[in-house]
Amino acid sequence: MYLSLWLVRRAELPPVAPGTRHLTVAGRGLVGAAWVVYENDSVLHYNELLRAVLVRDGARPRVCITDIWVDSETSLAGGRALWGIPKEIAIFEVQRSDGVSCAAKTGGGTLAAGRYTERGSLPGRWPLAFKLAQTLDGRIKTSRVRSSASLRPARAEWTAPADSRLGALGRRAPLISITLRDFELRFGG
């Protein structure tokens, strides 16, 4: 996983699941975007590009995936049916040489492109747990997410056409970027 985070003004935050609200501090919200390459021991092998926002479900902090594309029909169907994740299909290019470069396109054109260059590594494996809030069958569906990974700070460059739903990501450098190596990810339960 290749993850970047931005602090974004409230007026530029993407729409979130009905029943949730953007979690903001001093008029800014936290937006994350990631390229994910599921391979090796993954149940499915596919690529993914997503954007997510930190939200509130009542007083509880949650994460809401606002935009997501995959190159797997099976992943698309499962994500929508099980968790209310609004997956769409895209075509991906992933190149690994002196870092990683990713690009995603749909019939409507380029969504975004990104390049990550790792800058060292942090010792050990890092756990992360949170709850996802999506809309499923007209109601908020909350799903527990647990993960762990080896973390590597990275330098990231994102570009996106102005007419892409991800156009705002290319306007400024990310606040922070990391590579999550050998990550494990579990939904539900």
Rank of each mutant, 00 (worst) to 15 (best):
D98T: 13
G124R: 02
I65K: 03
R146D: 07
A173W: 12
S75E: 02
V53F: 03
C64G: 01
I85D: 04
S75W: 02
A33T: 09
E118R: 15
L49R: 01
A168T: 14
L175K: 07
G120I: 00
L5Y: 15
R172G: 12
A26K: 06
S101M: 08
R51D: 06
G107E: 08
L151Q: 02
T106D: 02
G79V: 01
G120S: 00
C64P: 00
V100H: 07
S97N: 13
T142A: 13
L175F: 15
P86H: 00
G84A: 01
N40S: 11
D163R: 09
D41A: 14
R119Q: 15
G114A: 08
L44A: 07
R152D: 04
T159E: 12
S97W: 07
G99M: 05
T110A: 11
F183C: 09
R56C: 08
Q95C: 09
F130P: 02
V43T: 13
V43I: 14
R51G: 05
R51C: 10
F92K: 03
I65Q: 03
R171M: 11
A11T: 10
L76S: 02
I91H: 13
D71K: 00
D67Y: 04
S4I: 01
R165L: 15
A129K: 06
E88C: 07
L50W: 06
I140P: 01
V36W: 11
G32P: 06
L13K: 01
I178R: 09
A156V: 04
L166A: 12
L82F: 14
L180H: 09
A160P: 08
D163H: 11
D67C: 03
G99L: 04
D98K: 12
P14K: 00
N40K: 09
R171I: 10
G170C: 01
G78T: 07
L50F: 07
R28F: 15
T74C: 04
V31F: 06
I91Q: 12
T142G: 04
E73W: 10
S148D: 10
E88W: 03
S148M: 03
L13D: 03
D163T: 10
R152N: 06
M1P: 13
Q95S: 14
R28L: 15
Y116T: 07
L128G: 05
A156N: 03
A168G: 10
G120Y: 00
E73H: 11
A162F: 05
V43M: 11
S150G: 08
G107F: 05
T142L: 12
G29N: 02
G120R: 00
A129L: 06
R165S: 15
T110Q: 14
P15Y: 07
A113R: 12
L169G: 02
G78K: 03
L3Y: 11
N47K: 08
L132Q: 04
A90Y: 01
E12H: 09
W35S: 12
L169A: 04
L180F: 10
T117P: 00
G19N: 04
S177K: 09
G78L: 09
S121D: 07
W126Y: 05
V43K: 11
R9T: 14
V25K: 14
T135L: 11
A112W: 01
D163N: 12
D71E: 00
E93S: 15
L30P: 08
G99N: 04
G138H: 00
A52Y: 10
G109L: 04
G108L: 13
L180G: 13
D67P: 02
